[in-house]
Design a protein around this nucleic acid. Sequence first.
DNA 1: AATCGCCTCAACCGCTATACC
DNA 2: CGGTATAGCGGTTGAGGCGAT
Length: 237
Amino acid sequence: MVTVREETRKGPWTEQEDMQLVCTVRLFGERRWDFIAKVSGLNRTGKSCRLRWVNYLHPGLKRGRMTPHEERLILELHARWGNRWSRIARKLPGRTDNEIKNYWRTHMRKKAQERKRNMSPSSSSSSVTYQSIQPQTPSIMGIGEQELHGGSSCITSILKGTPADMDGYLMDQIWMEIEAPSGVNFHDGKDNSYSSPSGPLLPSPMWGYYSPEAGWKMDEIKMAPQVSYSKGIGPSY
DNA sequence: AATCGCCTCAACCGCTATACC
DNA sequence: CGGTATAGCGGTTGAGGCGAT
């Protein structure tokens, strides 16, 4: 017997995959990622699905450049906590640990290069430097933990965010489509980090792709992956 | 116009922590 | 209480974009 075993997909996600994942997460919630991976029909590992969701598909994610406010916050929190990215991310609503980690990496590389170039201490020209906040971080270091937890004006101002901060992003469109009529709160609310702008359920357009008849049944969690997604379409986005 | 090098960011990997049985 | 499954975290890598030469 020759079982054609499909290999688990790796690499960049396609738009279709995103939609599949979003739908499945909407249905089953943000847990049991292995299960979600299976049920969604995605040829991905649960881990991969989770990562994609957390870093990219989660509603409420901010996209675009870090604001100066966020930059400062990251610097200060990093000075305080070190590489506890997820912890830092919790203080920056809409930002992921991955994003912050990446930001820090490039930021620090830049700083290191700068420092190499001009070893003289008098030449700290940039507006925000690591050193500048480390010794006496008055702005946030003085803030109580609770304030950091969401009460701080710093945080709230970030939360308010300027719309300009966010790029018109593909996911916005997806979420627009997904925007559900009912206000069912899908989010379990245990995490205060994200206040989802959309508390969506399944979008009608999505059901075009995902009607149970089309591919799979809810009650028997057996996937028929032959939903008519064309395989190998590689939407460039 | 072509090439090179740098930067950014999405995604993977391995390990640890936590939950569940 | 121990074993197993699952989730989460931090480090690392690689592809693509973009500006400089």
